[in-house]
C-alpha cells in the first residue's frame, strides 16, 4: 500500500504548524525582551526586508555557487583519492585511520588555517568547504567499492571483461547506490562547513547575513536567515538527493517499486 501524496506530507506539515504556533506563542508571552526573541512574523518580515534591500539574492547566489563548486571539487577529489585507496591496499591500510580522524574533524576547525593561508578570500571559503567534505566522501566511496559483492566482478571476468572495462561496466554500476548515499553525506558536510566559515569571515552569503544580524543586534534577521538555511538544506536533501537515492534503489532492486 502506498500513501497518497497528501497523506505523506500531512504529518510534517502539522508538526511545522505546531512549531510555528508554539514559537509565536512563546514570543507573545514576552519571557525575553522582544528584540532578543522575535516571533516568526518578525523573522519573515526581516527576510522580506533583506530581499527588498537587495541583500538576500546576492547572498543566496554566493552561498549556492560556493557550495556547488566546492561540492563538485570534493566529489572529483574524493573519487580520485578513493580510487587510489582501493587500488593500493597498503596505502589504504596506512591512510584509513588518519582519514577517519580527518573525517570527524569539523570543517570549521580548518578556518584558522584557511585564513592564514588564503586571507579573507573566496579561496579560503572554498578551501574550508572542500576540506570539510572531501574526507567523508572519500571514506564513503571506498566503502561503496568494498561493499560490491565479489560475485559481480567474478561474473564480469567470466564473460571476458577485465581491467578498466570491468571497473566501468561492473564495479562502478554495482557501487552506485552507495556512491549516491556517500555523495549525499558529503553534501551535508560541505553545507555545514560553508555556513560555518561564512559566519566567521565572508562579506556576502547566508552565513554572513547571520553574523551581520548578530552585529546589528537584529535577532529577527538571525532567525529569518536560519530558517532560510534550514529550508534550503532540506530542499536539497528531499528534492535532489532523496529522489536520486530512491530512483537508484528502485532501479537496482534494493527497495520494492
Amino acid at each position: 500500500m502506498t500513501l497518497s501524496r497528501w497523506a505523506r506530507v500531512r504529518p510534517p506539515l502539522i508538526v511545522l504548524a505546531v512549531l510555528v504556533l508554539a514559537w509565536e506563542a512563546a514570543h507573545r508571552l514576552h519571557l525575553y525582551p522582544d528584540f532578543l526573541f522575535p516571533g516568526p512574523l518578525d523573522a519573515a518580515r526581516s527576510l522580506v526586508a533583506l530581499a527588498r534591500s537587495g541583500q538576500l539574492l546576492p547572498s543566496l547566489t554566493a552561498t549556492l555557487t560556493r557550495l556547488g563548486i566546492s561540492f563538485l571539487l570534493s566529489l572529483v577529489l574524493g573519487a580520485i583519492l578513493a580510487a587510489l585507496l582501493v587500488l593500493i591496499p597498503w596505502l589504504r591500510r596506512g591512510v584509513q585511520p588518519l582519514l577517519l580522524g580527518l573525517q570527524s574533524l569539523p570543517g570549521i576547525a580548518w578556518v584558522p588555517v584557511a585564513l592564514l593561508w588564503f586571507g579573507f578570500s573566496e579561496n579560503a571559503l572554498y578551501f574550508v568547504t572542500v576540506i570539510g567534505s572531501v574526507f567523508a566522501i572519500t571514506m564513503g566511496f571506498v566503502d561503496a567499492f568494498s561493499l560490491v559483492p565479489p560475485l559481480y566482478a567474478k561474473a564480469g571476468r567470466n564473460m571476458g571483461v577485465s581491467g578498466v572495462r570491468l571497473l566501468v561496466r561492473v564495479t562502478i554500476p554495482a557501487a552506485t547506490p552507495h556512491l549516491v548515499s556517500s555523495a549525499k553525506v558529503g553534501w551535508s558536510f560541505a553545507w555545514r562547513s560553508l555556513i560555518g566559515a561564512e559566519i566567521v569571515f565572508a562579506s556576502v552569503g547566508l552565513g554572513f547575513l547571520l553574523n551581520q544580524g548578530r552585529e546589528f543586534l537584529n535577532v529577527a534577521q538571525v532567525f529569518g536567515t536560519m530558517v532560510a538555511v534550514l529550508v534550503l538544506g532540506s530542499a536539497f536533501e528531499r528534492l535532489l538527493f532523496a529522489r536520486l537515492e530512491r530512483f537508484v534503489r528502485r532501479r537496482w532492486g534494493l527497495t520494492k517499486a
Binding site: 560475485l151 559481480y152 567474478k154 561474473a155 564480469g156 571476468r157 567470466n158 564473460m159 571476458g160 571483461v161 577485465s162 561496466r169 561492473v170 554500476p173 554495482a174 552506485t176 532501479r251 537496482w252 532492486g253
Partner: peptide, 28 residues
C-alpha cells in the same frame, strides 16, 4: 585465465541488477 569459450553460470545467477534482462544477455 577466464575466457569466453568457458562460461560459468552461478548458483545465484549473478545477473547485474542495474541492467535489463536484454542488456544482461548482451553484456558479454
Amino acid at each position: 585465465g577466464p575466457g569466453r569459450d568457458r562460461i560459468l553460470m552461478f548458483q545465484e545467477g549473478a545477473l547485474f541488477p542495474w541492467l535489463s534482462a536484454q542488456a544482461n544477455v548482451e553484456f558479454g
